[in-house]
Design a protein around this nucleic acid. Structure first.
Length: 647
DNA sequence: TCTGGGGTCCTTGAACCA
DNA sequence: TCTGTGGTTCAAGGACCC
């Protein structure tokens, strides 16, 4: 235990929501929810205005929608903007001390003991107060709360005591006075399960916990956790501030809006996840020996499987191959809600895989493996060839277009997999002989299909763009995917220039005069924003006919070609000539109106508010989603104020 | 229509080896 | 050669954090 409160814990207040309110001036003072806006999304951050209605982190978004008023903004996260803000803050912290431990994007410990700062109460108060002010200025108004104490435990508790924009200094010697009245849940490492167990024993406060014998705690929680709780309850925390931590694993996972049951689709998802993991491994210069998969069933039970190789790898194909093998061991007949792929037992180098190279471990992937690509958000997704998805929509052969296995309606059985002797086991589990190459119609994956017959410049005519009614389509990926899931849109949508468009605030917006031309093909910028982002097609898929609008082609029975294509885009496929979905909150730029952000989209339109961090609340305009003048943009720069003419 | 995504750490049991 | 023991590694699941 230190003799001075020389550890600072800095925690930015509701950071995601605060950045949104900074960059979107019209949202200041209003409830803002950032997180997954899709059906199965959860709240990542709720602004303090939203918290007043009971919304909080980790709450299902659907529940938050029920709690919050209609003017609440539900926005998808903009990680680049948060990272930019975080960097600014971390740079400030690094000027305070060379020993800074960044815990997350919005949180860090600072060790003042290695600096020459005055560690008296007055000195730390002055330092922390100045730091708070600098953070607020440098971030354009995002505030941080600071706790200072003799340990990480108390510093973190301190920063939490007076949120938002608070400063709490726990003088050395006063730790137990602060700690013991608090509920046990405030201790790091006490989650719902531990809290419940303690409550059953009548232990509700940290003070009561401190009275529990060590033997009992070990009995209840095991050696490590029991000893940990015993020490923390006595404010014994000697964990050092460490500036660098090595990653132990890299993983990617995906929760689907609709539980998946068909094996080809599951394997395809596995390949995409493996490619994402491999891309991140390579960018980090890491390799790993253990490949893990995670499968969550509809009843939320989760199973994991892992396999450890002798040699580390960062090869997406190999990771996918092993992941497929592991998945074959899991019973997925009841459906899969979530699928994950991870690599652990990391090393910072890779050796050639001699076995694979020698053909002793034949690759099971029977189609070209997707390459990774970088997205504007910095996330890596498997790249699709611009044409890759087209055959799925415009299969030249009527038979092929009619019913790929993934499209079998209502859980109809997939066609038998070639060379799958047992029927139930996919061929991936076989290790004998060359890998089977299924006919294209059996694997509606990008790479396995024949070269598309549709030009990338000219969208296929509607008659050839086969619908894919059985495609589970929409997927929830609330934190990463640019899906647009709007507040409920009426099934029957008024059309015409004045048709209302649901926006991220849950309000209706009257489209302005600047509706784009339906003849325009999609622009590359917006297509890039959606490529690889398996957003949700709920807006279109759930509302057949919703693409009908002013200046649009005649009404079509569901699913329209555009719906089908949009569904393809929404599951991460880049379709030439088809415009992607727009995420609520997304930064955009319009050729005529300048920078703005997406308030919402649906029924073939996107509504944008044109404003920035330094403008007054701006006008709202609605465009067709494929308006070529509208493009995704970088986060606005909050540091450069717009010069205004003095009145 | 409750329950995301990316992590870390711990515990337990089985397998393997000396 | 067989058996017991202890250490290590791996696999699986759970809890927790932001």
């Amino acid at each position: 235990m230190r003799r001075e409160p020389s550890i600072l814990h800095v925690d930015l207040d509701a950071m995601f929501a605060a950045v949104e309110q900074r960059d979107k001036v019209s949202l200041r003072g209003k409830p803002v929810i950032v997180g997954g806006v899709a059906g199965r999304g959860v709240v990542a951050t709720a602004s303090y205005e939203a918290r007043a209605y009971g919304a909080h982190s980790a709450m299902p978004t659907a529940q938050a929608r029920r709690l919050c008023p209609p003017n609440t903004a539900f926005l998808s996260p903009r990680f680049p903007a948060y990272q930019k803000t975080s960097k600014v803050v971390m740079k400030l912290l690094a000027e305070v001390s060379p020993l800074v431990e960044q815990v997350s994007i919005d949180e860090a410990y600072i060790d003042l003991a290695v600096t020459g700062h005055d560690l008296s109460l007055a000195g730390i108060t002055e330092l922390a107060g100045r730091l708070k002010a600098e953070i607020a200025v440098a971030t354009g108004g995002v505030t941080g709360s600071i706790g200072a104490a003799s340990s990480k435990l108390l510093a973190k508790i301190g920063s939490d005591l007076n949120k938002p924009d608070g400063l709490t200094i726990v003088p050395a010697g006063a730790e137990l006075d602060i700690l013991h009245p608090l509920p046990v849940r405030r201790l790091g490492g006490v989650g719902p399960a531990t809290e419940q167990r303690l409550h059953r024993a009548g232990v509700r406060t940290v003070g009561q916990l401190a009275a529990v014998p060590l033997d009992d705690l070990v009995d209840w929680f095991g050696t490590a956790h029991g000893h940990g709780l015993f020490r923390l309850a006595r404010a014994e925390d000697n964990r050092p501030v460490v500036s660098e931590r090595e990653a132990k694993s890299v993983s990617a996972e995906e929760t689907f809006d609709v539980d998946l049951t068909d094996n080809p689709r599951l394997n395809r998802e596995l390949d995409l996840l493996a490619a994402r993991v491999a891309g991140r491994l390579r960018r980090s210069g890491l390799t790993g020996r253990t490949v893990n998969i995670k499968v969550r069933h509809p009843d939320f039970t989760t199973v994991t499987r892992a396999i450890t190789r002798d040699q580390p790898t960062d090869d997406g194909r190999l990771i996918a191959q092993l992941a497929r093998r592991l998945l074959a061991e899991v019973d997925t007949s009841g459906g899969v809600r979530l699928l994950g792929v991870g690599v652990s037992t990391l090393a910072d180098f890779a050796q050639d895989d001699l076995f694979t190279a020698a053909g002793e471990d034949p690759p099971v992937l029977s189609f070209p493996f997707p390459e990774e690509e970088e997205t504007p958000s910095g996330e890596t997704f498997p790249a699709r060839s611009p044409n890759a998805a087209v055959p799925r929509l415009a299969e030249p052969s009527p038979a092929g277009a009619a019913s790929p296995p993934g499209s079998s309606p209502a859980g109809a059985a997939s066609p038998p997999r070639p060379s799958s002797a047992g029927g139930a086991s996919p061929p991936e589990s076989s290790s004998a002989g060359p890998p089977p190459v299924p006919p294209s119609s059996a694997f509606p994956t990008a790479g396995v299909l024949p070269a598309p017959a549709v030009s990338s410049a000219v969208p296929a005519p509607p008659s050839v763009q086969a619908a894919d009614p059985g495609d589970p389509g929409p997927r929830a990926s609330p934190l990463l995917e640019p899906s647009v899931i709007l507040p409920p849109v009426p099934a029957v949508v008024p059309v015409g220039p004045s048709a209302p468009v649901a926006d991220s605030l849950g309000a209706s917006v009257s489209p302005a005069a600047s509706l784009g031309s339906s003849e325009q093909a999609g622009h590359p910028g917006s297509a890039a924003a959606s490529a690889g982002h398996p957003g949700s097609a709920a807006a279109s898929a759930s509302h057949p006919g919703s693409a009908v609008g002013a200046g649009r082609p005649p009404a079509q029975t569901a699913p329209s070609p555009r719906d089908s294509a949009q569904a393809a885009v929404s599951v991460g496929q880049s379709v030439p000539g088809i415009v992607p979905t727009w995420r609520p909150g997304q930064d955009v730029r319009h050729d005529d109106y300048g920078p703005g952000w997406v308030r919402g989209s649906g029924v073939g339109r996107v509504t944008v508010r044109f404003e920035g961090p330094h403008t007054p609340p701006g006008p709202v305009r609605t465009f067709f989603i494929d308006d070529p003048r509208l493009q995704p943009a970088d986060p606005p720069d909050w540091l450069i104020p717009v010069t205004t003419t003095p009145s």
